[in-house]
Design a protein around this nucleic acid. Structure first.
Lengths: 154, 154
DNA sequence: ACCAGCTTGTTGACATGTCACCGACTTTGC
DNA sequence: GCAAAGTCGGTGACATGTCAACAAGCTGGT
């Protein structure tokens, strides 16, 4: 039973800032999307890859890989979006287990209405306050932490 | 109607990394807490300020201010934790509208079981991979973005 | 050809989070 | 004093996310 290694005061402060940022930034994004197009962040996450794909159709498996979501979460979200007319489901020709997700006209209109405001929001809140050097270093920091999380979960 | 300002490829990459980190780090935390003590991240967030307060009691309003949660979210979470015996609710002597939240013995045992592993996890995943310079820079970046979000929501 | 094991998607139960609203109480301005 | 406005906590409806389990189809080794 070894002595626990607590965080230093500096580290605790940075950690608290990170948690605050996670929440407030999420909230700012949700509000911008809701205001500009009535979409949630979850809606936007799925509509974005769909709108960039050929014909606005993706196999559920591939859409899941794009956003790195669990299958169950994806299925639930697609059901909710289907109910609101943003996407439709179709059978998959190649693989009878599969399911194709197709962007509807309404879905395309919604993401096209939301996208410019979304990009503007991310720029204003995240990138405009940083110098190009800081953006690079921020990216490096994220890489290091991501590596550590990746190593940890394997 | 002006041309939208899209993200540069570098910015889009950093933004994608940030979103991935947000998800995977949250997941790593949830799993560590669940494994070490059966607590969720939401449980931990409330138990931590409670365990550091005098007698393990805080007024709901003040607990909410500590964690910066909405009242409704706090109330729901306290109800769930009360049902599992982690906290109890009491009347507030000063203010008849108020509600005091008290840590139970079981709640204290749970947070004390979880805390060392939590600190170790945060160190391993976030701070050990970074040099002290990078930690400082990361803190500065978070400050800048937090300021921008704060300005934006006022 | 077979079948054990893998992949794919869905579902139901439950935990979490947000929103609009209410009811009770306190504070403020007069 | 007292009415208007603000504060505090809770509730119900709903959206989101996770987990375990399932059904169906695919795949590879024999």
């Amino acid at each position: 039973m070894s002595e626990p290694r607590w965080l230093t005061p500096d580290q605790a402060e940075v950690w608290a800032k990170y948690r605050t940022l996670r929440r407030t930034l999420q909230r700012a994004q949700d509000q911008q999307l809701q205001r500009d197009s009535g979409l949630s962040a979850a809606d936007y996450a799925l509509l974005a890859p769909l709108s960039e794909s050929a014909d606005g159709v993706l196999r559920a498996r591939d859409l899941g890989a794009e956003v790195d979501w669990e299958r169950s979460r994806l299925s639930h979200q697609i059901s909710r979006m289907e109910k609101r007319g943003l996407v439709t489901r179709e059978a998959c020709a190649d693989d009878a287990r599969g399911s194709m997700v197709r962007l509807t006209e309404k879905g395309r209109e919604a993401i096209e209405a939301a996208a410019p405001g979304h990009a503007e929001n991310v720029r204003q809140l995240v990138f405009d306050p940083l110098t190009p050097d800081e953006v690079r270093l921020f990216g490096d920091v994220l890489d290091r932490i991501l590596d550590a999380v990746e190593r940890n979960s394997r």
